[in-house]
Amino acid sequence: MRFESPDTIEQAIGLLNTCEGTSRVLAGGTDVLVQLRLALVEPELIVDIKHIAGMRDITAEDGGFRIGAAVSGAEMGEHADLVALWPGVVEAMELIGSTQVQGRATLAGNLCNASPAADSVPAMVAANAVATIVGPNGTRECPVADIPVSPSKTSLTKGEVITSIYLPARPDNSGDAYLRFIPRTEMDIAVSSAGVSLTINCDGVVTQARVSLGAVAPTVLVVEDASSAIIGTKLEDAAIATLQAACSAACNPIDDKRGTVEFRTKTAGVMAKRAALIAYSRAGGSK
């Protein structure tokens, strides 16, 4: 194994593109090192991207925020303006692992690890986040939702690196939230999860909404029926019940050591319901 920590993105891409065997980008390393330890991968090349300019910055841009691919969860949590704009995305990121893991783990790493249970991904998808990807053929933008294609697989091609993730501006009276179900209070991988982002008008009526689910399908799900269930409502009980049912209906989970199909299906709806209520109150709605 070779370890490189280039200073420029061009060098990084060059290294990755010319490596013939398996290579791995190293951001926070909280997935990569575990995989090395368990000998799940034996890469020829590791490219640490933390020394590349801009990778560690959170920058305000067009009313939203651009988050460098090497920014840790802890750094996101310490950024008051980011927390104010996208509390749900930040809370999703901060749910990952322990305080120690937070000191290293990144949004981009969580996304590229492509676990169906990745916590930040449903929140980013609900937020319509967009990744900036640089590769041998230049730079492209890609909605976060289109990056994971199946468990452990992304749509990135050889030599491509995510350099940042953009969380867009949002109208006033918007709120987002993310909730997951785990058997303990910390240190578990999500058994089911939901992200909700919504905007309300001055009457408290939901005008836009996006609802996503994690850990209940091979990749993150966007549940259109759930958003349409609450658009035009003030999250009355009936609307919430429809959202919950729509979420459960959308689930396509597996039975494994972490949960049963039945359990995941049911709790995903519960998480979505509760997340919607939190997002609504963050948007300024009162019930």
């Binding site: 209070t185 240190m187 578990d188 991988i189 050591k257 972490r258």
Partner: peptide, 16 residues
């Protein structure tokens, strides 16, 4: 054995 690690062999943590 499917859960040979502290991630899925879930002993109580402080916040529990």
């Amino acid at each position: 054995l499917q859960n040979a690690g502290f991630l899925d062999y879930r002993i109580p943590v402080a916040s529990d």
